[in-house]
Each structure stands twice: as structure tokens, then as C-alpha cells.
Simulated assay, not measured.
Amino acid sequence: MDVNPKQRRRHSAEFKAQVLAACAEPGASVAAVALSFKLNDNLVHQWRRGRGASPASSATSTTLAESAPQFIALSLPPPSPPPSAPPSAPAPAVAPVAADAIRLEFKRGALGVSVTWPVSAAADCAAWLREVLR
């Protein structure tokens, strides 16, 4: 039987489940399993990630669901207020920052620098910050 090299092969859900089960065996590598089934290992990787797998196969979906990481919601405590300045030192005069601005503060020893960028120029801010942090 001649197969047109430009024509894609179609694999049944049972075949995909068999390949994925072989990948799930302890010590099995995806490349070795793909080679044994005469498949490209990239295709098997796609099947493992859930792309190209038929939803009709319950074994395939169960295997993928077991290996997929689960989202875990964490509750975080509310942020603590910043420490206040000592009462003997005068408070520095800081202009109010607009809600749509990016504010960066750098401190190195006694030197402190505060930079404010508009959110509309966030890409420029990121480029500048990369240069500063080099």
C-alpha cells in the first residue's frame, strides 16, 4: 500500500491510548515509545499535552488528567503597611503618584532614587530597567 507522504495519517483513539499508556510505564522515554510505534516523538509529546487526543477515549483523558498539574488557590495575608519614618526626622516631600503610573524606588546605602513612568510607556520602562539592572 503506497502512502502519499504529504497525506497525514489518522490514528484511532485506542491507538493513541495504547501509545500514551506505554509512555506512562516506569522508565519509558517518549522517544523510545514513539520509535517503537513508528511515530515522531513530537507527535507523541503533543498527545501527552492533550492536543490531538480524541475526547472519546476515556483512558487517554484519564491519563492526561492524572499527569496535569492542578491549580491550588492560596490565601495570602493582607500587605502590611510600610514602616513609618522616625518621629524626629521630617517626612520627605513626595508628589502624589497618579493611579496610572509605574513607580520604581532604588536604594543603595544612603542613596535613594525614585522614578515614575506613565503606564502607557511600560515597554520603555521595562527596557530602561533592564539597562539599569545590568
Rank of each mutant, 00 (worst) to 15 (best):
R10I: 10
E14I: 10
A123S: 02
A127D: 12
R8N: 01
D100R: 08
F15E: 14
A93Q: 05
K107D: 03
R48E: 04
N40G: 05
L39P: 00
P69G: 04
A34Y: 01
A65K: 07
V97C: 02
A59I: 12
G50A: 06
F15V: 05
L74G: 02
F15T: 08
R130Y: 08
K16Y: 02
C23E: 02
P86E: 14
R10Q: 13
A122S: 11
A17Q: 11
C125Q: 03
A126D: 12
A101P: 00
A31V: 10
L133R: 15
P87Y: 05
S120H: 07
D124H: 03
L35H: 09
A89L: 15
P118Q: 11
A32K: 13
A123Y: 05
S36H: 09
S114Q: 12
P96T: 00
A93C: 13
A28E: 01
P118R: 04
E14L: 15
A22L: 03
A95N: 07
P78V: 01
V19H: 03
Q46W: 10
Q46S: 14
P90N: 04
A59D: 14
G52K: 08
A95F: 00
L111V: 04
G52F: 07
G27M: 04
L133D: 13
A32R: 08
P79E: 02
V30D: 07
A89S: 15
V19N: 09
A95R: 06
V19E: 04
S75H: 02
P77Q: 08
C23D: 11
